[in-house]
Amino acid sequence: MPRSAPTPKPWPSDAWYIACTPDELADKPLGRTICGEPMVLYRGKDGKVAALEDFCPHRGAPLSLGFVRDGDLVCGYHGLAMACTGHAASMPGQRVKNFPPIRSYPAIERHGFIWVWPGEAERADEAKLHPLPWAEDAGWAFGGGLYHVACDYRLMIDNLMDLTHENYVHAGSIGQPEIDEAPVTTRVEGDEVVTTRVMSAVQAPPFWRMALRSAGLPDDGLVDRWQICRFSLPSHVMIKVGVALEGRGGPDADPSAKAAAVVVDFITPETEHSHWYFWGFARQFAVDDPAVTASIREGQRKIFSEDLAMLEQQQENLLRRPDRKLLKLNIDAGGVRSRMMIERAIAAEA
């Protein structure tokens, strides 16, 4: 019988994904599954990050349970030392130099994150790394965190590209009735899907009142509020958000009249039903105040934990009812177009 073609994975592989943050590699190797690939990440002798298949070629133990010695990753089971290239380097009392190498993955450290390329190594290109202009600009401050989420990474993209849910899931922090009432536009700009919602002459919700105070602005007057969501491959969503004093230009207002930021969302698939969610908040107000960073980080953490609970239960429902057809509305256009872009990228690799 002819062999059937393998089922394509639900994510592009030839792309840079965030694997971890530098502090996660402070003192020992880190095991993490990225796009279905179990990897071990560690720092070699020169401090450069390396990423290997998390599989000891001797007896199959996870290398992530080992330790680093003189720049080599030593298996915690029998002591086989692996070089950053994936080749066996040494083992007490044994000759191992002719062992076949295990897989190594391109890895780079940039913008405060460690990125890996789970696809074909020869296609890895640092020029394809997602640009983060705010990460290298002293005029911005950043604070963020990491969640492990038990749902398909595309459900998170759907969530971020349609912020209508804020009025329900986040009613006590960033939700407000005008979100339902304001029209949403969706368009494709080059290699990005963009959804835009602008609310004029509204009261700022609790989170944004706090942001206005942090920016030295009054928090009790009317403001113009905006949400501009940008999806880009393989699975990133950057959301320009903010409030400006009414009639001062909205997103284009002078910095002295607004509290503006970018909600940073890097979504790294783990398995078909789980992902790593690296979130953050890059802002252009009170950039030298660590207390504001800590306050916003805590506020964002609470907001994202509300999303997590909803998304994980949504995934459970979908797995229980795989044949149910879901409805699509105009507010879903951003997520639908983002999924189309993902599907095209997967097909191109195939």
Rank of each mutant, 00 (worst) to 15 (best):
P183H: 08
F113G: 04
G334M: 06
T185V: 09
P10G: 07
I331P: 00
N330V: 11
S214P: 01
G31M: 08
K48A: 07
P29V: 03
V40L: 03
L129F: 07
I174L: 09
Y277E: 05
V188H: 12
G93N: 09
L311V: 07
V149W: 14
K48P: 00
V169A: 14
C84E: 02
A15N: 06
V264A: 05
D46L: 03
M210S: 12
V223T: 03
A294E: 15
R32S: 03
H165I: 15
P10N: 12
W140G: 00
R337W: 09
V263M: 12
A121Q: 04
E189D: 14
A282H: 01
I174P: 00
D158K: 12
P10Y: 10
D180Y: 09
A81R: 08
W117L: 04
R123T: 07
D158P: 15
L30P: 00
R344E: 12
L30H: 05
G216R: 05
G71A: 02
S200K: 14
G335E: 05
A347H: 06
V74N: 00
H111K: 01
D191Q: 14
A215Y: 04
R320P: 02
A345Y: 01
T186C: 15
R320M: 13
G143Q: 07
G335C: 08
H111T: 03
L212H: 06
I34F: 04
A286I: 09
L80N: 02
R213M: 03
M82R: 00
D224K: 06
Q315H: 11
F231A: 12
T21I: 15
R230Q: 14
R321Y: 12
T164A: 08
A350S: 07
P290A: 02
F113R: 03
K28C: 04
V188C: 14
P57H: 10
A253M: 02
L65R: 14
C20M: 11
L233K: 14
M1Q: 06
M161G: 13
K9S: 10
P12T: 11
P183G: 09
R230M: 10
